[in-house]
Write a protein that binds this DNA or RNA. Structure first.
Length: 269
DNA sequence: ATGGTGGACGATCCA
C-alpha cells in the first residue's frame, strides 16, 4: 500500500502537474493539502477518470485537504475534534482497505503559525496565529492518542509546518524565530511523536540535505535552500509494516510545480 | 535593509 502526502498549493494551479505525478508514481492513496477550493469546485472527474475516489474537505480561498484513493475507503470524517468554533479545513480521516490490512489514515494541514510576536524576555507569545498553531497541535495530540489506543495501524500524513531538527533545514539559522522552527513548536511536535509514533522518513534516512519544500522566492530551489516539513507519523502497528519511504524531490523541478514535493511510504498492507 | 514569488480573489490575504 503506497500512501503519499502532497501539499499542492491550489488544485486549479496544479491540474496538470498533479495528474502527471499520479501517472508516474501511481500511489494507492494521496493526502492532499492546500487544495484552496470549496468541495463543489474540486475537479473530481479528472481523478475519478484515473481510478481514484475523491473525498474533499475544502473551504474558499485557503487551506483545504482531500484524499484520493484507488483502494476502498470507509468511515470518512472531516475536521479535527476539540473546537467546534474552528472553521479552518485542515483535517480528514478515512480507513483505507488494503489487500492484507486496513489502515486509518489522517490527512492534515497543520497551521503555519507566522507571524510570531515575542514578549520582552524574548519568549514567543501564544496568541494570534501562533497561539492557534499551538492550540491546534494540542488538539491533534489528543486525537492521535485516541487513535493509538485502537491498536490499529494509523498513519498521520501531511504538511506539519514543523522543521523537526536543524539538519532538516539547509540554513537553520534563518529559521530560529520562525513558527516552523521555534523550540515551542518542535516540542509540541515531539509531544505527538513521543506518544509512540515513528517518523517514517527518519526511521530509514539519517543526515542533512533532505527537504520537502523550497520557497518560490530568491531562487531557493536552484540554491537547494529547502526545509523538510512534510511528514508521515506511523503508529507502532503501522511502523511494523513499513517497507520504504521516499521524497519525490524531482517533482520540484517539473513544469509549474508546487512549492512542496510528495513524500510517500510503502506499507505491507 | 529590502525585496524577492506564487495562488486565490477581487484590490489584499496567505504562505
Amino acid at each position: 500500500m503506497k500512501l503519499a502526502t502532497f501539499n499542492i498549493n491550489g488544485i486549479k494551479a496544479r491540474i496538470e502537474a498533479l495528474p502527471r505525478w499520479l501517472e508516474s508514481a501511481r500511489p494507492d492513496v494521496v493526502a492532499l493539502q492546500e487544495i484552496k477550493s470549496v468541495d463543489e469546485a474540486f475537479p473530481r472527474d479528472v481523478f475519478e477518470d484515473m481510478g481514484y475516489r475523491v473525498e474533499t474537505h475544502g473551504q474558499k480561498s485557503f487551506n483545504g485537504v482531500a484524499l484520493l484513493s484507488r483502494l476502498p475507503l470507509e468511515d470518512v470524517t472531516r475536521g479535527l475534534p476539540g473546537d467546534d468554533s474552528d472553521e479552518q479545513a485542515r483535517w480528514i480521516e478515512a480507513t483505507v482497505i488494503g489487500e492484507k490490512r486496513a489502515v486509518r489514515l489522517c490527512g492534515l494541514y497543520l497551521p503555519n503559525g507566522n507571524p510570531v510576536s515575542f514578549d520582552p524576555e524574548g519568549a514567543p507569545e501564544a496568541t494570534g496565529k501562533y497561539g492557534y498553531k499551538l492550540a491546534w497541535m494540542e488538539r491533534m495530540r489528543a486525537r492521535a492518542a485516541e487513535l493509538l489506543a485502537t491498536e490499529d495501524p494509523v498513519v498521520l500524513a501531511g504538511d506539519y509546518n514543523i522543521i523537526p531538527q536543524p539538519e532538516d533545514a539547509a540554513r537553520p539559522e534563518t529559521w530560529v524565530k520562525d513558527a516552523l522552527f521555534l523550540p515551542e513548536s518542535r516540542a509540541a511536535f515531539r509531544r505527538i511523536v513521543n506518544l509512540g509514533f515513528t517518523e517514517a522518513f527518519r526511521a530509514r534516512v539519517t543526515g542533512p540535505g533532505h527537504y520537502s519544500f523550497w520557497d518560490y522566492q530568491a531562487g531557493a530551489w536552484e540554491r537547494n535552500n529547502g526545509i523538510r516539513i512534510d511528514h508521515l507519523l506511523l503508529s507502532p502497528q503501522a511502523a511494523d509494516l513499513l517497507r520504504d519511504v521516499q521524497i519525490d524531490r524531482a517533482v520540484r523541478g517539473g513544469e509549474k510545480p508546487s512549492d512542496h514535493v510528495p513524500v510517500w511510504i510503502d506499507l505491507d498492507a
